[in-house]
Write a protein that binds this DNA or RNA. Sequence first.
DNA 1: CCCGCTCTTTACGGGCTCTTTACACGGCTC
DNA 2: GAGCCGTGTAAAGAGCCCGTAAAGAGCGGG
Lengths: 225, 225
Amino acid sequence: MSKASLLVIDDEPAIQRLLGITLGSEGFHVQQASTAKEGVLMAANHPPDLILLDIGLPDRSGHDLLKELRGWYNKAILILSVQDSEADIVRALDNGATDYITKPFRTGELLARIRSAIRRNAVGTERSLIVSGELEIDLAARAVKRAGAFVKLTATEYDLLALFARNEGRVLTHHFLLKEVWGVGYQEQTQYLRVFVRALRKKLEEDPERPLHIMTESGVGYRFV
Amino acid sequence: MSKASLLVIDDEPAIQRLLGITLGSEGFHVQQASTAKEGVLMAANHPPDLILLDIGLPDRSGHDLLKELRGWYNKAILILSVQDSEADIVRALDNGATDYITKPFRTGELLARIRSAIRRNAVGTERSLIVSGELEIDLAARAVKRAGAFVKLTATEYDLLALFARNEGRVLTHHFLLKEVWGVGYQEQTQYLRVFVRALRKKLEEDPERPLHIMTESGVGYRFV
DNA sequence: CCCGCTCTTTACGGGCTCTTTACACGGCTC
DNA sequence: GAGCCGTGTAAAGAGCCCGTAAAGAGCGGG
């Protein structure tokens, strides 16, 4: 946690020097880039825990760069900017920026906002491979194995299972499941759930009559363990 | 998602009025409190998706209140303050504040920061754990453990327990419990409480005849410790 | 055009949960 | 000490939710 890695994308040498020293002495591992191009490259090759991005880069609009980064980078991005206009701030935040800090900034505050953003990061880490007993669910590959063998699931079955897997241990209400898998408007069709939960249990459980993974919470919903 | 609920804790009537109108017209469901005490009560009984907290409350330091809320409330807490001192900002952020906004604020920016915080909420799958002795109640997962083992509760049993847990140490009247769990119109059915409190004690207490968690306050109601 | 796969829809039986009732127990008041 | 009120405890009935199978509908490929 104390050895978080940061990437600073800023073209002003003075800022780079200042941040390099300040952040370094706080125990962060700091990478520095002075152009958008360089920044994307570094972020891709050694994904940092947090990106400090200057909106006013020479080669490209920071807003564009932010959008591109958000396409695949889901950790914290803090915007640094001399621009104090409300329109810029709103735009950046709505494009997925974690925070927006105007220059000149106060060092202590910047550090506190960085700590806050990193702390928040740590919680929301999603795995793409979920293992539960003899079950393996690979969200990236959209593949499911049971006791080492691939299991053939239909599209809807998989969607439902993936939703369960991403929320392991948590009770998901009928409403929520129906909304997520079938969309709004199907939230009262609880019989769909009965049918598809049955199908999943047949394919995934040792004894479908005594499920160990997809547990029913009567009157509320289901829980995946 | 568009119907997120917010709680505003601020003692200035002018601010309350402004925020009430602004946030309401954005489609948020807004609760308002003007003292720390009132704020805690509201947050406990109807946990909102985000809390807007003024640091300068009349009855209590906002920093203290922030710490207490963070003890069990895991969603976003945005600080509003006339204080622009770096020490205050750093202190609040390090105590778990999601963001810190100084008054006077710009409405558009405030809204963007609220949206950002709520969006982040949805991703960060934090769980709000309430621990009391060997009991663990996970409000987000709707799961209850006793001495490390999961306890199976029915829907109504859980609703009742969750209400107790969110109001730890406080005496809850029969009227209040019945209204919250069964709805208005059941406020005289005290026998329901007897039956369900019995069921909870059987499942949660070491010795159901000598309860340590769900205490009865004769003539008034029950208290969870 | 037919076949097969998947999703939708229907039906019914069983089990679980909630409700309701009955009674025992203890403390308080008269 | 008797009676009453508030609470604890057990148990049975009713209703609803869930599990399960199976047929119909929609779709795409051969």
